[in-house]
Write a protein that binds this DNA or RNA. Structure first.
Length: 288
DNA sequence: ACCCAGGGTCGTC
DNA sequence: GACGACCCTGGG
């Protein structure tokens, strides 16, 4: 663990605000100078955009270049993805244009599972607060630039945490779900390592659905936003339901729109790119 | 003061 | 399959 730097020159499809505010992650915060600092996979990193260059610096558990290339999904051709999606229709063209700097991060699977269990029927400021308190109380401290950061706690670090302690942290009714899921993972009732080896996305989803607090929406978010990295999913939340109804289905009462109908439409329109399409649409509808 | 919604899931009917 | 309950917080 030592301080390192890396510069990605002439970056395309890489806007800090789009990446960190599009709803996929909860631990990146904007600094006064417009850069962002975050904690992930035991690293603390500051990311700054200067012209078309992206400057990374921080303390990393490994080689910074490799860590950045993996986490920021640098090997994927987002320009091509955007081109494909833009050709679908005018709506997609607009949403892709709005969130043109989005990249889907390769986040730690365990952290993503817990984070999205916490996200259920919750709002983003509160989700961030809960995760921060959880990390501060049970995670490993990392000091950088004389500031203290806390890594997301491992399953092992949460092994003996009680439901009551979770409740005190402000988890609300999700306390029991966090407790049960942690125990299931520690006992390998759901084996996270094996999830990476399974090719069929539906098989992986079925495994994730065994976890307490993981329903269809959360499972799809885990599949898309973690380093499982499946793009052939389409997480449907209130915002996506809204935007899909406004653009395509046009039913009077959006809350009564059939989920299966949305799923089928997404599959038909976006195919293997449904996940990333969802993210452009979500970000566009929520922010614009 | 009061009500409502927020990246849903779960148990019950 | 539909329905209500669920903790907590910020905004109207």
């Amino acid at each position: 663990m030592k301080e390192q730097e890396y510069v990605l020159e002439n970056a395309t499809s890489f806007e800090l605000k789009d990446i960190f505010d599009c709803g996929q992650c909860f631990r990146w915060n904007e600094e006064p100078d417009g850069s962002y600092t975050g904690v992930f996979k035991g690293n603390v990193l500051n990311v700054k955009k200067v012209g078309e260059d992206i400057q990374f610096k921080g303390i990393c558990d490994g080689d910074i270049k490799e860590i950045v290339e993996d986490y920021f999904d640098l090997s994927r051709d987002y320009e091509k993805i955007k081109e494909t999606l833009s050709r679908i229709d005018e709506n997609m063209k607009n949403s892709v244009n709005y969130g043109s700097g989005i990249r889907i991060l390769n986040q730690d699977l365990w952290e993503t599972i817990i984070s999205f269990i916490i996200s259920a029927n919750n709002n983003i400021p509160r989700i961030k607060g809960i995760i921060e308190r959880l990390s501060k109380k049970y995670g490993t401290k990392i000091t950088w630039n004389s500031q203290e950061y806390y890594a997301f706690p491992s399953a092992k670090q949460l092994e003996n945490v009680t439901v009551e302690e979770y409740r005190q942290l402000g988890l609300g009714f999700r306390d029991i779900r966090l407790f049960e899921t942690t125990q299931m993972i520690l006992k390998k009732e759901v084996n996270l390592v094996k999830l990476y080896q399974e090719k069929d996305t539906n098989m992986v989803r079925d495994e994730l659905l065994k976890l307490s607090g993981v329903g269809p929406k959360v499972a799809d978010c885990i599949l898309l936003f973690s380093d499982l990295k499946r793009f052939d999913v389409f997480p449907i939340d209130v915002w996506v339901r809204r935007v899909m109804n406004d653009l395509y289905l046009k039913e009077a009462d959006e809350t009564k729109v059939n989920k299966k109908k949305i799923e089928n439409l997404a599959k038909e329109k976006f195919g293997d790119l449904a996940g990333i399409a969802q993210q452009y649409l979500f970000y566009w509808r929520r922010e614009a």
